[in-house]
Design a protein around this nucleic acid. Structure first.
Lengths: 242, 242
DNA sequence: TTATCCTATTGATCTAAATCAGTTTATTTA
DNA sequence: TAAATAAACTGATTTAGATCAATAGGATAA
C-alpha cells in the first residue's frame, strides 16, 4: 500500500477515497515548504495570508494578551489545515508558530474551491474534517470554562492521543509529545507550576506518565471517566461512509 | 428601502449584495418555524439534524458535563446560522436552546451548496460570516483561559453589543439583553453569585449598567481598554468589498 | 568546560472566585 | 391577587490555582 500522507489518512476515516480523489489530494501537496521552530508562520494582523496543509511536525495557534499572557487555542499536527480562517477572513486574527520543525504545503484557496466543485465527496470529507477541528476547539472551550485542572489536562492529552492515532502518529498506549510544561500551561489556561503538580498527581495515581517528550497512558479507562472523554469518534474502524 | 432581514444586513457588511443575491437569500427564508423558549431545538447525539437561519429571538448552544455543570459556547442572534456544524458532522455534538421565542428558517444543506455554486459572491460572504463566528468562539476561549472575571464579562458584553449592532439590534450605547445572570455565568465560566458582584463593580466604576434586560455602556473607551476589546471589525461603515 | 539558558520540580504563601447560606425583588401561575 | 417560582443580591467562609522563591538537571552556546 502506498503512503497516502496524514491528510488522506484522516479524510479516509470519513469516506473511502477513490484513486482519483487521492490524486487530487496529492496535487495539493506540490509547494512543500519548511518552517523553522519558534518563527511565526502567521502573524495576527497580517493580511493576504496563505493556507497550508501540515505534513510534518507540530505547530500551535495562539493569541497574546496585552499583559503578555498567552492562550494557545489549538495545536496543529500532520494532516491539519492551517490558517484557513485567516484566508477567508482576509486578515489573520491569531498567530501560528511551529513547535518543531514543520513541513507544510501551501494551498491556494482557488485550488481548494476548484476541488470543491469537481470532487464533491472530497469536499464533504474536508468539510467534515474542518467541523471536527471546530468541535475540538469547542471542547477545549468547555474544558477551560467548566473542568478543573486535573480533568482538563487528562482530557487534553486523551484528545491529542486520539488525533495523532487518526494520522498514524500514536497508539492507544501513548504518543510522542514535543510540548513543554509551559506550552501545556498556555493551552490549558494554567501556570506551568500547576501543570507540573497536575502531572505528578496523574503519575502518582497511575493514570498517565509524561516523560522524555513521551506521553504514556497507564489506565485509559479511568482516564476517560475522570476526563469525561467522548470516545464516540474514536471507537471507529474504517470510514464512516462508503 | 426594503427590509433585507438580519442575515442580509450582516452579509451586507462584507460585500455589497446585488438584487439577485438578495433574492437568493430571500428564498432561503421560506420554511419559517417558531420555537418556544427552553425547549431544545438541537440535542447532542441527534443525527440528521437540520440547519437554520435565525430570524428573530436569541438562542444559545451549550454542553452539559456529567456533574451537571453547563458551559454555554455561544449565543445565536438574528442573522446567525444555527446547527450548521451538526449537519456537516452528521450528529450534533452540542445542544441548542431558545432563550426567547425564536423564529428560524430551515435551510436544506443541498440548497446551501447550490447557492455556493451559483452565487460565488454570496458564498464568500457566507463563509466570511462563518469565519467571523468561529473567530468569536476563539476569542471566547481566550477569555476563559486568560482573562479575569471582570475583563471577561466586559469583553463579552462589548462583543454582544457589536454583533447586535451589525444586525441593527443595538447601538454604541447599549442593547436589549434577555440573559439572566445564571446564563451569563454559564457562558463566562463563573458562578451567578460572582457575575452579580462583577456587574456591581462595573456599575460602581461607571463602566456599564445591566438593568431590566438592558445593557447600557456608560464609558465605552474605558471598557474597551479594560477588556482589551478589538474594535477592528467594528470601526467599519459600509461593506468591506464592492 | 564553564557560563547561560531553558525546563522541570518543590515548598510557602496569597488571592480570585467558589461555595454556603441566606434575604429581597421580580415574574409566573393558579 | 395570593401563592409559587425564578432571578437578583449580599455576607461569611473556603479552596483551587496563582504567585513567589528557590533548587537542580539538561541542553546549548561561547
Amino acid at each position: 500500500m502506498i503512503d497516502v500522507g496524514p491528510l488522506a489518512r484522516k479524510l479516509g476515516a470519513y469516506v473511502a477515497l477513490s484513486e482519483a480523489e487521492l490524486k487530487v489530494l496529492e496535487t495539493m501537496h506540490r509547494k512543500r515548504q519548511v518552517f523553522p521552530v519558534r518563527r511565526d508562520m502567521v502573524h495576527e494582523g497580517q493580511s493576504n495570508q496563505s493556507a497550508y496543509i501540515l505534513a510534518k511536525g507540530w505547530a500551535c495557534s495562539y493569541k497574546i494578551l496585552p499583559d503578555g499572557n498567552r492562550q494557545i487555542v489549538d495545536f496543529q499536527i500532520p494532516g491539519d489545515f492551517l490558517g484557513l480562517r485567516s484566508v477567508l477572513f482576509r486578515t489573520a486574527d491569531h498567530n501560528i508558530v511551529p513547535i518543531t520543525k514543520v513541513e507544510a504545503s501551501e494551498v491556494a484557496v482557488s485550488d481548494l474551491l476548484t476541488t470543491f466543485s469537481t470532487s464533491p465527496r472530497l469536499a464533504t470529507a474536508i468539510l467534515w474534517a474542518a467541523s471536527r477541528d471546530e468541535a475540538m476547539v469547542v471542547e477545549h472551550l468547555v474544558g477551560l470554562g467548566r473542568r478543573n485542572a486535573l480533568q482538563r489536562t487528562a482530557h487534553f492529552l486523551l484528545e491529542m492521543g486520539t488525533r495523532l492515532k487518526l494520522v498514524g502518529l500514536g497508539t492507544a498506549e501513548g504518543f510522542y509529545c514535543p510540548l513543554s510544561q509551559f506550552m501545556l500551561a498556555d493551552a490549558l489556561g494554567l501556570t506551568a507550576v500547576h501543570i507540573n503538580r497536575v502531572l505528578r498527581i496523574l503519575r502518582e495515581d497511575g493514570l498517565l506518565v509524561v516523560h522524555n517528550k513521551q506521553v504514556r497512558f497507564l489506565d485509559r479507562a479511568r482516564l476517560v471517566t475522570l476526563a469525561d472523554f467522548d470516545t464516540a469518534y474514536l471507537d471507529q474502524d474504517g470510514p464512516l461512509l462508503r
